[in-house]
Design a protein around this nucleic acid. Structure first.
Lengths: 235, 235
DNA sequence: ACGTTAATCGTCACGCAGTGACGTAATCAA
DNA sequence: TTGATTACGTCACTGCGTGACGATTAACGT
């Protein structure tokens, strides 16, 4: 289930990666060489910024797609050519992180222990420039507080978890949908979400510190001194 | 976020439990003493069985609420008096498990180590009678394969995770939305979902074995011999 | 016996998300 | 200029979820 049902005639679980290889489904013409037909009248990024503003000002449920499209100067139908659902507009950055995650995993030297590698890669993928933090906070605050957005999360988390699971599977010599790789991928995301939630509550906190702490606790089986003993920075 | 946003003026995190104390929101009159007004024309359980049958026969998306209501002999509006959404009809049993989980946690002796207690309670809450297994499989197969149902999962998982988090918090002397309790609650569910997925793939498997194995791996920080060495039964 | 109260239900109407079909506008290539 | 390509707008439609209102059915009080 999960990976199996989404790869209809796929040979093994190795082809699951290719299912994800639809990176820029972000509407008409993400970018690329010399265009051909009519140029796009907007962009996924513009729609994202407009949506983010309207959502924070008036709420997610209260903001209709009609209004977002109008603010962008396009039609309602066009919005749905850029995003499959109203909620997807806030998951662009997250989906992009999955790709960075995979590349970072591929660059890990073979000697590093499994859980150490996962921790370093995940923490490294979550180092944001200071000027990008406010938007990140706004987006994550919405996702954490609006039920409809929490519901939409499952679909996007799936690819993230699978990236971790496939790395663990390769290390353990198993397929990605075995019990251990599957558990590792999902548990990794689980503790990272906990770290994110803590970070959102503290106005002046470093996200990577929370992530590092949570991932160390996971690798220790939550058997440490119950946290509270973090030596500044390590990863 | 999460617990904080759902307990508006609550004193501390202790009142979060009372937020969950809406166990039988399952429509009109779950049960109770001598009724008063007009007796219900159906029940949540009946709607669940009818929905389960129609979903497996014709698919979740293809089955309209209109059809479910008609098969039950009620109106479409009445269905939504029993369930908030079309998907919620499949989450009754899961929501009930949360209550059993809380009671089992309360009965754990103080001496048992934290992760051992969690494993025993969770495994114990998942011992089903043989005659209940087919329906459980059907329901979990649907939840695992239909995107709309996966999306609805987040809301129901929340209460389950919180039950674990609050137990962990009490043991660690922290509040439930601290980093460690939060991470433990979510990671526990994460590995249990992995166990469930593996169980669904194997036709003749024992769910509790997978759960026990996954939870032992979690408590060991995934540092064991990568599984495959389970001594029959332990919990 | 009769009215009161309480609980469930059905009908109607509405807003909004998401989808398919079809025609139109703008660009590049030959 | 002609054709191919890409993006867009309009229209119509299905289905979920909600609010308002009246009708139905039973227990309770006098």
């Amino acid at each position: 289930m999960q990976a199996a049902s989404q790869v209809p005639p796929g040979p093994t679980a190795a082809s699951a990666a290719r299912t994800i290889s639809r990176p820029g489904r972000t509407g008409p013409r993400a970018a690329g060489g010399p265009r051909r037909g009519r140029p796009p009248g907007t962009s996924a990024r513009e729609l994202e910024l407009i949506s983010l503003r309207l959502f924070t000002e008036n709420g997610f449920e209260e903001t209709t797609v009609e209004r977002i499209a109008a603010a962008a100067g396009v039609s309602r139908r066009t919005f749905f050519r850029y995003f499959d659902t109203k909620a997807d507009v806030l998951w662009q950055a997250f989906d992009g992180e999955v790709q960075r995650l995979r590349e970072a995993f591929a660059a890990v030297p073979p000697g590093v222990p499994l859980m150490d590698a996962i921790r370093q890669v995940v923490v490294g993928a979550n180092r944001y420039r200071a000027e990008d933090v406010p938007e990140l906070r706004t987006r994550m605050n919405l996702i954490g507080s609006v039920p409809a957005l929490q519901a939409s999360a499952a679909h996007h988390y799936d690819a993230w978890e699978r990236a971790v699971s496939e790395f663990a599977a390769a290390r353990l010599g198993q397929v990605a949908d075995s019990l251990y790789p599957l558990a590792i991928g999902r548990a990794t995301l689980a503790v990272c979400r906990a770290a994110y939630d803590r970070w959102l509550d503290r106005a002046d906190a470093d996200l990577t510190v929370y992530l590092d702490q949570a991932l160390r606790a996971l690798a220790a089986g939550f058997a440490g001194d119950a946290g509270r003993s973090i030596p500044a920075r390590t990863s």
